[in-house]
């Protein structure tokens, strides 16, 4: 499984990784690194969506490393890549967190939120599958009552994973759907509730209020519910991810995030600066459209893939 994950991720990250590679290869074989070359590395980290701040800090580290090594021998490409990977890993490691770790309550309620098209419904289906494999019973709450056919989409995932589904009327109250699902789980002794909410842009105040309302309503059945409030983040997103995370976190208090669509050419490098700034646990990454394409997030693998290195 782990190898599979790394392969997929590496494949997905190959474009950005090779870019980092290129930037690095211009250094190797030299004894000193001039400003232009450092700028070059920084530029390429920016290209991987790491953001200007983190990119310049990592570049600085590489510069320091370079000077240290300079005393002894020529710098190799591998030295630079390893430095890069370990710098990224340092940031990501504290955020590595398995979603399926500890469940205290029954039913355990998971709420998925995010902007439109980030992959919430697909992720809901994939999480349901994970629990099915773990012999847990699941009910899916189709709380996206706005988008056309959102319920039908989740229904398909429910059929595929053998999960139950609770839905309401189109245009109905999404909080009510969530409430009904938790109620159903209580009555029927179901282990897990996954609430799939409608996509919303974080700057739409009313829609963000709708989300807080959903949490509030669910908490009437269990003061601790939703136990997990997870934001689903599109891996192709750029620096706007910061705004997304901040506002979703301010509204509902996030417990974790899942990064989707990392099987494309997108780098997901923004994850690095997000991890540093928000310290929100990263649970999993989506690497395809299949049922089993949700993989645990591994900081080491992610960092090494981003730096263009093979897995240890």
């Amino acid at each position: 499984m782990a190898l599979n994950w790394f392969k997929k991720l590496k494949n997905g990250l190959s474009k950005s990784a090779s870019k980092v590679d290129n930037a690095i290869s211009s250094i190797t074989g030299k004894k000193t690194v001039d400003k232009e070359e450092l700028d070059n590395i920084e530029d390429h980290l920016i290209l991987a969506d790491l953001g200007v701040e983190v990119a310049s800090r990592i570049t600085k580290r590489i510069k320091e490393q370079k000077f240290e090594l300079n005393e002894k021998k020529e710098i190799t490409k591998l030295d630079i890549s390893e430095t890069l990977a370990s710098e990224i890993e340092k940031i990501l490691l504290p955020c590595e967190s398995n979603i399926f770790d500890k469940f205290k309550s029954k039913p355990h309620v998971i709420l998925l939120a995010g902007v439109n098209g980030s992959g919430k419904t697909t992720t809901a289906g994939k999480i349901a599958e994970k629990f099915r494999l773990d012999n847990k019973t699941v009910v899916l709450a189709a709380a996206d009552t706005f988008r056309a056919a959102a319920v039908a989409q989740l229904k398909t995932w429910a059929d595929r994973t053998g999960a139950k589904i609770v839905s309401g009327l189109d245009g109905g109250d999404s909080a009510a759907v969530a409430y009904k699902a938790v109620e159903k789980a209580k009555n029927e002794n179901i282990d897990i509730v996954i609430i799939d909410t409608a996509g919303r842009l974080q700057n739409k105040k009313d829609l963000m209020e709708e989300l807080t309302k959903t949490c509030r309503v669910v908490s009437k059945l269990d003061p601790d519910a939703p136990h997990q409030k997870i934001v689903v983040l599109d891996g192709t997103v750029g620096q706007n991810a910061h705004s997304q995370l901040k506002i979703f976190n301010d509204s509902i208090g996030l417990t974790g995030m899942i990064i989707t669509k990392l099987d494309g050419s997108a780098k997901g490098g923004v994850v690095v600066s997000l991890a540093e700034k928000f310290k929100i646990p990263i649970h999993a990454v989506g690497v395809g459209e299949g049922l089993d394409d949700l993989q645990d997030f591994k900081a080491v693998s992610f960092s090494r893939a981003l730096a263009g290195l093979d897995e240890l």
Binding site: A48, D234, V237, G238, A241, S265, A266, G269
Partner: peptide
């Protein structure tokens, strides 16, 4: 294309 896309916009458009 999504207005929120990051640096990958170029890759995608080109591809």
């Amino acid at each position: 294309a999504d207005a929120m896309t990051g640096q990958d916009a170029v890759q995608t458009a080109k591809a």
